[in-house]
Design a protein around this nucleic acid. Structure first.
Length: 269
DNA sequence: ATAATAACCTGAGGGC
DNA sequence: TGCCCTCAGGTTATTA
């Protein structure tokens, strides 16, 4: 279920435990994820993890011979466990690191992916089409206005399209639109410049706030084993029927593009 | 070319 | 307790 903030928090959390660490060996217990686990992954023993970066919801592990790309899908998770820790049904990969730590990839629904590429990962077919990072200067009201001119689809679906902007998922899409005061079903091209500016700011602020919440949560987690995700404090997602925080009108829930959508009928138009 | 939908997979929770 | 149904914070392949 991780979106950009959750992936970013995982990245920051594991950073001190994996940077500069050698992978002793890799246990691949399940090959069938969203795509088959690259054959190179099982042979990463001896490689040192030089860096861990993020692009959208993808984690990029920089290794001497290339890059391991990890996506967590809907139910994926990374944890740091002792070497003695027994693996469960959904613990598909273990990266045994020098020292006592194991970086463990778990994913009940298997929508995640673990891919290796020796080329520039940003040129990889999974990443090359991604839109700008929402927390970079490339993403702003002007960009959103230009890109929406030719799109009649609902604005919520538009901002969830990774080709338009990377990393915005179902929860933060609803949250951002609420913050911007824009109805999720509005055709993208119906937004004017001012509304696009508000929405871009809404997305940026929503994601930044969530990352800050995640940072706080991290400090409360004892050994940073990352047993779970932090719980995001949402203003509208999951609050159907409850009074809107701004005006008290009951929050509505409906389906848009096969996904649950929440909005305030009065504050968002 | 763009946009709506079907599909991948498993578990949790509610109603009966 | 068990069965059936719906839903779940993602993304691509297929269809229209």
């Amino acid at each position: 279920m991780p979106e950009l903030p959750e992936v970013e928090i995982i990245r920051r959390a594991i950073l001190p435990y994996v940077i500069g660490k050698k992978i002793e060996h890799v246990s691949v217990r399940s090959l069938k994820l969203r795509w088959e686990v690259s054959s190179e992954i099982g042979n990463l023993g001896g490689a040192t993890i030089e860096q861990v970066e993020r692009r959208g919801k993808y984690l990029l592990f920089g290794l001497p011979a290339g890059t391991m790309i990890i996506h967590l899908g809907m139910s994926g998770h990374l944890s740091l466990v002792p070497q003695s820790s027994p693996y469960g049904k959904h613990d598909h990969l273990d990266f045994i690191l020098e020292g006592d730590k194991v970086l463990r990839f778990s994913d009940p629904r298997k929508f995640g992916a673990v891919i290796f590429t020796e080329d520039d990962p940003l040129r990889h077919e999974l990443l090359s089409g991604l839109g700008p990072e929402p927390l970079s200067p490339d993403f702003n009201g002007g960009y959103l206005y230009r890109e929406t001119r030719s799109s009649a689809r609902a604005i919520k679906l538009f901002i969830m399209d990774g080709k338009k902007v990377a990393g915005v998922g179902n929860i933060y899409a609803s949250e951002s639109l609420f913050r911007a005061g824009i109805a999720p079903a509005r055709p993208a091209l119906s937004l004017n410049e001012n509304e696009c500016a508000r929405l871009a700011a809404g997305i940026t602020e929503t994601l930044t706030d969530a990352i800050q919440q995640g940072e706080k949560w991290l400090q409360t987690v004892d050994q940073k084993t990352l047993p779970a995700y932090f719980h995001v404090d949402t203003a509208i997602y999951g609050h159907d029927g409850a009074p809107c925080l701004q005006c008290g009108t009951p929050i509505e829930k409906y389906i848009l593009g096969q996904r649950s959508t929440y909005s305030c009928p009065r504050c968002q138009s």
